[in-house]
Every structure is written in C-alpha cells, then in structure tokens.
C-alpha cells in the first residue's frame, strides 16, 4: 500500500467540445502528464506562473475538475468526482480557496458554515454540544468565539480565511489543499496564516499541498517543491535543494525573479 496522495500522469484538458452547430476546436491541455506524490505529514508546494496549471492540479485532487487521463489515488483509493468518493476519503482531503471572502456563503454565519460540515459528515460531528465544539474549533484557528455569529461581510480577509481553514478542519482531514491560500491577503496577515498552517500541520498531523506563485511564501512552509510550467512538471526537489541548487533553467529564472524582487523591497 502506498500511503498518501499519488498523482500519476495527470492530464486535464479544457474546451474542445464540439456542439451540433459549432465545429469542435482542439482541446487545450491545462495539465499534461503531471506525476506527484504527497506522503503523510508532508508539505509539498506546487509553484509556477499564472496559467501553468497548478490550480488545475489542486482542483483535480478535490474532484472539482475531471481529468482527461491519468489517476489520482489516496491511500490506494482511486479518486473520482467528490460525490463518488467514500465518505472517509471525502473527509480526508479538504481545500482552502484563494479568495477568503467568496469561499464563504455571504448569507451564512461562520457558525452555520462549520455546522454544515458536521451536518454533511455526521461521523466526525461532535458528540455533545455543537456550540462548545464550534468555540473550540474557532479557538484552534485563532478566532474569537463571537465570530460564530457573524457573516463573512462582518469579518476581515484574514478572519475569513481562518473560518475557511476551520471549515476544512471540521471534518478532520488528513490532507489540506491550499490553492493560493494566502496570496489575496496582506503581507502581515499572510505571515499569520502561514504560521497557523505550520502549527496545524504539526498538531493535526496534516499533509499539505500548497499551491503558490510566491517562492518567498513557499520557502517558509514547504518540505518539497514542484515547479510547473505550461502544464508540465519541470523540476521537483526538496525545498533546500531547490533554493540552493536549482537544476532546471526555468526554476533558475523564477528564483532570480524572486531574488530581484526581494532586493528591491529591502
């Protein structure tokens, strides 16, 4: 048995469906032959420029996108669309989205958002008092209990992202897919959310797939880094190796660009 997430030869295409009256156009491959492993308690970052296919990889893992070819397995269970997965696998993989505000229903309070997770997965719902459990869960992501009664519009971006993380944690996941989870936040808030993720990772024994375009952020959290370009994986190495000894020219370029920016900022 292979523990954790295994992506092999993933290929995802968009468009190209011909209609009755339209001539079909050739499909565009967003992800073309990506293979990646994420073991238990491991943080793997996927970096690349916009359009490199990294978000599509994330969405394939959580079943929001149906791959054209290739397989994704978790603990040897093949992953299809979310609805077709067995409940314990549904719970095992959860996602934190890029836009902290729009990933929360504006008509629901933070408490209602967390309760929905438990309502959907009674197996991990708290046995006793849901109110108490809500308070504890909010405290775990660094939020005040009063947040439970508020809607997203009454919360800051950072607080929204914490609620989003709490929602994912509510079903006790083993793997958290963070799609640009901090890139929409202020730099100071970014650091707080990153620290929270690092803490949660060790406390909850989480594995994390961290999608980002920001090498500076990735450096703080990743064990291993996969670099994507135009739908393909160009390099995969441990964080240390990649930063000290990049092999692929594209990685070199990304690093130079990041260093240039750091130089300008300081």
């Amino acid at each position: 048995m292979t523990a954790g997430l295994v992506i092999s030869d993933l290929r995802v295409t968009f468009g190209g469906r011909g209609g009755l009256l339209r001539r079909s156009e050739p499909p565009v491959a967003a992800v073309d032959g990506v293979s990646l492993r994420v073991g238990p308690r491991e943080t793997v970052a996927v970096v690349g420029e916009s359009g490199s296919g990294k978000t599509t990889v994330a969405r394939s893992i959580v079943g929001l996108v149906t791959p054209e070819a290739g397989t994704i397995t978790y603990d040897d269970t093949v992953l299809g669309p979310m609805r077709t997965r067995p409940p314990h696998v549904q719970r095992a993989i959860q996602m934190v989205f890029q836009d902290p505000r729009s990933s929360l229903n504006p008509r629901m309070t933070a408490g209602a958002i967390l309760r929905e997770a438990w309502h959907t997965h009674p197996a991990v719902a708290p046995k006793g008092d849901w109110k108490q459990a809500t308070r504890e869960l909010l405290a775990e992501v660094g939020l005040d209990p009063t947040v439970a009664g508020r809607r997203p519009s009454a919360l800051s971006g950072g607080q929204c992202q914490r609620v989003s993380i709490a929602r994912a944690l509510a079903v006790r996941p083993r793997l958290l897919v963070c799609d640009e989870a901090v890139s929409a936040l202020d730099v100071s808030v970014q650091a707080q959310i990153l620290r929270l993720l690092v803490d949660l990772k060790s406390e909850r024994d989480l594995a994390i797939v961290f999608i980002s375009h920001d090498l500076g952020v990735v450096r703080q959290i990743a064990d291993r880094i996969a670099v994507m370009r135009s739908g393909e994986l160009v390099e995969e190495a441990t964080a240390e190796d990649l930063f000290t000894n990049p092999r692929h020219p594209y990685t070199q370029m990304l690093l130079d660009a990041a260093l240039d920016l750091e130089g300008v900022e300081s």
Binding site: G63, L64, S102, L104, E116, S164
Partner: peptide
C-alpha cells in the same frame, strides 16, 4: 462558479442542499 459553491462541493454537501442553501437564497 462561485467559490462557496465549490467549497460545498469539496465538502461533499448533498446536491439538493447546495441548491437550497447556497444557490436559492441568492
């Protein structure tokens, strides 16, 4: 296409519930 609907899908919330709670109110 909204993120909160995607989030509900990732949570494997039942379709009927997604429609009634995350789409219908709007």
């Amino acid at each position: 296409e909204r993120d909160w609907v995607d989030a509900a899908r990732v949570m494997a919330v039942a379709r009927i519930r997604i429609v009634t709670r995350h789409v219908l109110p709007f």
